[in-house]
Design a protein around this nucleic acid. Structure first.
Lengths: 403, 403
DNA sequence: CAGGTTTGTCGACTACTCTGACAAATTGAC
DNA sequence: GTCAATTTGTCAGAGTAGTCGACAAACCTG
């Protein structure tokens, strides 16, 4: 049912400011573009633009000649580096902190490579604060920070922003948001809101808003790793589900005769397409992780048949599962990310064949399947997006109270 | 991303009127209840209530004593039978037309039983118009009709409201909405908007809003029949997908060694839980349809082992698929409808066992699985809901132009 | 340089909600 | 039965936001 909550005139302003900002973060636009996109009048747009300009979020420059008659409309754009959020990528082999602007682009990034399985949540939070300091948070001329977001490889409980379980980090029920908030507070003297999200969800958000999915409103994102995660983007926003855990596509049953899954069940999708089976099928050490995958890529590039067969088999199973997901969710686009992204060239033939064989329903429902295009900073950007969201939804409120 | 469209002061009024109506259709409420539910002020609510009252949609009666001090707040309720939509249920064995009020309750229903596979779309539309006349559309004292909705057992294309394919009716690419509109126009002299929807989607809508799902905002509805359809309800509204065909859960692959599906693929869910396998497993004629299912129920009630085993096996496969769907969608509630509803008592043990074995993730994510509770009129009500939706979203606009 | 076109600006107007004061209608204590 | 406390409906005035229409500004074409 509809939201059932009342609207006030002030909400109108808030919505319209957010709409303008929403258009602009996809790229600069002239004032008359904004008028066309929002359906508001020129007078109203003048007020909105001037308010956002006073907040320092946007500025106007005279636009290039259009070649058409009429008074030229000035180009409105986000002020780069005026406002930003801190994005944190807590991966198993990488810890990265980056400043991300309203346009979803990184301003600067600081990272540490290396195995982090031994790091405690506390030392991780401490490292994050140190890196945030190094990146220049709070310094002169630095952007106004609206918040901090962190991407974690594990289950995150929305209610209290706890990391319920991150097996690959060895974390259980960690209040990571609080740890980061206090670490940053102690080191930098600023209190920032910290949000946490699952890495698949945040990768999906970045990819859906700024990557290959930028033109689609309904995207299914598949994140391959040791396990297989996913995130469902509907109308540009993540589908959370009733308790916030929607998107666990890795445990969809696809093969009743399949192997036992670490979840205790049998024949989950992830037992057919996860990192371990893939390496095993290729004759490599199933526990060799990232380095094993790199070996696999080299072998495939070298035309080694066993590697190619293993990848094709993975593509086939990927196709089996995706066919079902496409029938269920009818996304316009499927984005393959994580481990699978770089492997797509070797999997897509087998994958497509399976999709064609299992296509059901009218021809209109065709979802293209593509590899993720954003690089290593996708998680960072998705994490920052988490923190930017409330500020984008209420720009005036955020910047007059916070800054 | 957000909707990016501008809001005007008039939209505020529209939204607030719709909010009040949205609260009221779940049951009567006092004016101060409405104030609490919407967050608006008492003065504003006075204006909204009086506007809706002038439109004839609601009225106020003095409420029963609350036992608490203070001036009593009058009870606001929908005027029964003031405004309604015509719901049409086009099933294989039943054609029904009903008047459904704003509260989602039928005012009157006219139906024809009997096999309709020989009926053409044209004669069906003609019959619908005749039944609408019989029900008293346009007569004195009849409710104001805001539109017509029809539930069809087949694929419906949203763009032009065509029935793309309804195999069990033998319809292919039928402009059924237009047929009904002209048939009603010719016979009754009124031009009404006609919308069409898939039976699973409309059954889901009815069940989610007025049936077992009335307290949940995220519901997965599974509709068993010859095939298996489904509908995903997110935040009270159907999840349409990119091209409007989301919810085709019957063709999720669950068994690579399974039987060939009528969709051309292998091991679709529907090959393991559909009507045909169920009857076959029970030793009955797989083509005996509804009568076969009735025999099966009788046999199960009589404790016949083969029938019980067949139902348990169906429950098991239902559980396998549902486990996957719950992991993917994280609904708060799963509603089992259509053919499966009455069979649930015989399937739920095996189903639950499978769900427990395949549960993944934190304990918070538990979806209860229940049988649909609305009777034969569910499709009718869901169909009418389709027609009511625009009127509910803009009550003032609809009733001043239309009536 | 003149006419056509598109766009920004400004003031008057409309629509909606909020605020605050007051009146109305009930409960409960004396 | 009366009076205080409490809750709610009503009303007028104020505030905020967007629209409308007229006009000026800035560009193109010829």
């Amino acid at each position: 049912m509809e939201t059932n909550s009342g609207l006030r005139p002030a909400d109108v302003r808030q919505n319209n400011l957010a709409s303008v900002l929403g258009v602009l973060r996809r790229g600069s636009a002239t004032r008359s573009d904004l008028v066309a996109a929002t359906g508001l009048t020129r007078s109203t747009m003048a007020g909105l633009v001037s308010e956002l300009a006073e907040l320092g979020l946007i500025d106007e420059v005279s636009s290039a000649a259009t070649g058409r008659p009429g008074r030229p409309s000035p180009l409105v754009r986000l002020v780069p580096g005026a406002v930003a959020a801190l994005g944190i990528d807590v991966s198993v082999t990488r810890l990265a902190v980056g400043l991300v602007g309203l346009d979803g682009r990184t301003i600067s990034v600081v990272e540490r490579e290396g195995d982090r399985t031994a790091d405690s949540p506390e030392s991780t939070a401490e490292a994050v604060a140190e890196m945030a300091q190094r990146i220049g948070v709070g310094g002169d001329g630095a952007p106004i920070l609206v918040g901090v977001g962190a991407a974690v490889p594990g289950l995150v409980r929305g209610r209290d922003a706890h990391v319920v379980l991150a097996p690959n980090l060895g974390w259980t029920d960690v209040a990571f948001a609080d740890l980061v908030r206090t670490a940053i507070h102690q080191r930098l003297g600023v209190l920032l809101d910290v949000s946490i999200g699952n890495e698949a969800d945040l990768g999906a958000m970045a990819e859906a808003r700024f990557g290959v999915g930028r033109r689609d409103r309904n995207v299914l994102y598949v994140h391959g790793d040791i396990g297989v995660g996913g995130s469902i983007v509907v109308d540009g926003a993540r589908l959370p589900g009733a308790s916030g855990y929607a998107g666990e596509i890795g445990h969809m049953p696809v093969n009743p005769n399949g192997g036992r899954c670490r979840c205790g069940s049998v024949g989950c999708w992830e037992t057919e397409i996860g990192e371990r089976v893939l390496l095993e099928r290729a004759g490599l050490d199933p526990n060799s992780g990232n380095s094993g995958v790199k070996k696999l890529v080299v072998a495939a590039e070298g035309g080694e048949q066993r590697a190619l067969d293993a990848l094709a088999e993975n593509g086939r199973w990927l196709g089996v599962g995706l066919a079902g997901l496409i029938n269920i969710l009818d996304p316009g686009l499927v984005v393959i990310g994580g481990l699978f992204g770089p492997l797509m060239p070797y999997m897509s033939d087998a994958l497509d064949a399976e999709l064609v064989a299992r296509r059901f329903g009218p021809d209109e429902r065709v979802a293209s399947v593509v590899a993720a295009e954003m690089g290593t900073d996708a998680l960072l950007i998705g994490a920052a997006e988490l923190a930017l969201t409330p500020a984008l939804a209420d720009p005036a409120g955020w910047l007059t109270i916070g800054g």
